[in-house]
Nucleic acid binder design. Structure first.
Lengths: 336, 336
DNA sequence: TTGTACGCGTTATCAA
DNA sequence: TTGATAACGCGTACAA
């Protein structure tokens, strides 16, 4: 086993106590210049790096946050994570990243892993608002902030966007263009996607259009899912003139399926997505979609988490942030 | 300060020693069933989770790997990371993720951070083959594996793709279509992109086409960079009929710039990218590009790292893996 | 089958 | 300005 150089080794070689070495490293206490230099020379000589594990044990701080997301390969989360990283960097925190792939079991696994690792705080995009992971974090009083989910508990902080309003915007826009048979590509059965279905239904209802579950195809999340579900839709003999995909990745897959079938967007089928990923403006057909701030959500959540961590007393109020979605009109829809 | 429940608390409440609690948790030694049950009950009662920090200190293992990439928001790395995550999951390792944004200073920072945190191993996509981070890892004899860079040191393991060959393929393809004035969008000045320039030059030379640095625009990496550089190119009065972008993200930006300028692909300008990101087939114009395995590179590197970690003696040989790139022809190029 | 006591590498406290 | 030493929470000989 590789013997690691410790503070004791440095102390011995520099003819000082471990306490002094510790002082030199932390820079908190004054140390005589000559001793300091002697110690620093030995540290450099061995490329000595402090052992944060041991350090954390006494300090009770790891300078680490854990981030749990549903799918790291979805560009939506990439952008959120970018925002988180930026904040973490400013505060000199390091980031653990975990991916649940929408499985509650994995979510719980990583939650526990982070708790065991004593991450100072956790950002989590949960599979369900009452997931076991959330319960555990809450019970353990670990600073955490929920991403991308509304939690019905006044004590729990979260940031999300108004999915019902966003989906309403998308559907209502299609209806305003004259579409009445609008297919819906349903994401996995998590709160966000269920709410988007609600917004879709709400828009139908307000426009006196009957809802039909024959036009709802699920479930999924990424471009492959969108491809598959749209193929199902196309071969279903259902009549429809537009598709509302619950997120952009699925819309990208839908686009592929539509073109493969020989149809065209928006001439034959109109298409709307959700998220406004930066690539959607460069798709085969620039995509009409719903924008929600992503980078900002990550930043916001991370910043709030930092204050949660640093005021060890609870803040006295909690953040329930609901971002407002916006319709971004591009070229994927046409007036009937 | 929140008092954490420790093994000692459990021991006290269950009327046993800490050693016994430890045995119950690890399951290594036999414990009488009745005591075991008593201890387990107390553990459940408090939702006790072991403190991995303390555990690591004695065990000298953190069950953690660190991953350092150049840009987490580039879909290329998303896919690589996906491969890494899959392997880590199988081996019950957790993953620290860090992003250097092509800055050597940040690379060194995270390398040190991982060393201090005693990550059992590190996967790194370095800014330069002789970076300070690489030097440190090598000196400290920490198990590590280099991603996406060829290292001129027999002891250092790496996996990458043959950038020269790939860029040659791309350029030669354009030439075979009759293009002779081919602009090159240069990525940041790191080995991979420099090699792609070499491949480009090589193809020109073998086809007796003079190289002109007036056709080379740099430097960048993502879609915004591609947009900016292509605008520069378009306003430069240089005559050209094709663009070879050093990666797909830049090609996406180039596509945007070209369309904004009123020109069309491939009618007015042919375009080739590099990486074969899965979205490239769904772009405005499905992109002709160079494929290199991404998920597989991540998997391979992670698996090799795992064996490096688990055979604490060095393996006796090292892996220098160079993946073969392939031309993927879609619709973004035309014959002159 | 179980308990005692020490070590892991650091920081913090108290003396000197 | 420095040193000795007790924590921190866990694993593990060694002993019982």
């Amino acid at each position: 086993m590789k013997k690691n150089i410790t503070i004791a080794d440095i102390a011995q070689e520099a003819n000082v106590s471990t306490a002094t070495v510790s002082r030199v490293i932390s820079g908190t206490t004054r140390v005589k210049d000559t001793t300091r230099e002697r110690v620093e020379a030995v540290i450099r000589k061995y490329d000595y790096e402090i052992n944060s594990i041991a350090q954390s044990l006494t300090k009770k701080k790891t300078h680490t946050i854990g981030v749990i997301v549903l799918d790291i390969n979805n560009l939506f989360f990439s952008e959120v994570i970018k925002g988180i990283n930026e904040v973490a960097r400013e505060h000199e925190y390091d980031v653990f990243l975990a991916n649940t792939d929408f499985e509650e079991e994995r979510e719980l696994h990583f939650t526990k892993a982070f708790i065991r690792r004593n991450t100072d705080g956790i950002l989590i995009s949960p599979v369900a608002e009452n997931s076991e992971g959330i319960r555990l974090l809450n019970k353990k009083k670990i600073p955490f902030f929920v991403l991308n989910c509304r939690i019905n508990n006044p004590d729990i902080n979260y940031v999300t966007n108004d999915n019902i309003a966003g989906a309403y915007l998308a559907t209502d826009y299609l209806i305003s263009l004259g579409h009445r048979e609008i297919a819906f590509l349903h994401g996995y059965k998590i709160q966000g996607f269920i709410e988007r279905l609600k917004g879709y239904k709400k828009a139908l209802k307000e426009n006196n259009i009957a809802y039909s579950d024959k036009l709802v195809f699920g479930y999924g999340e990424n471009d492959e899912d969108g491809l598959r579900l749209t193929k199902d839709l196309l071969s279903s003999k259902q009549s429809f003139s537009a598709i509302f995909a619950s997120n952009d990745m699925m819309a990208i897959g839908a686009m592929e399926a539509i073109y493969e079938s020989g149809k065209r967007i928006p001439d034959d089928i109109s298409l709307v997505g959700y998220d406004n990923l930066s690539i959607t403006k460069n798709l085969k057909i620039p995509l009409t979609t719903i924008n929600q701030p992503k980078f900002e959500q990550g930043k916001l959540a991370a910043e709030s988490l930092m204050s949660l961590i640093n005021e060890n007393t609870s803040v006295g109020y909690s953040s329930h942030l609901i971002m407002k979605p916006e319709l971004v009109i591009r070229d994927s829809c046409r007036k009937l």
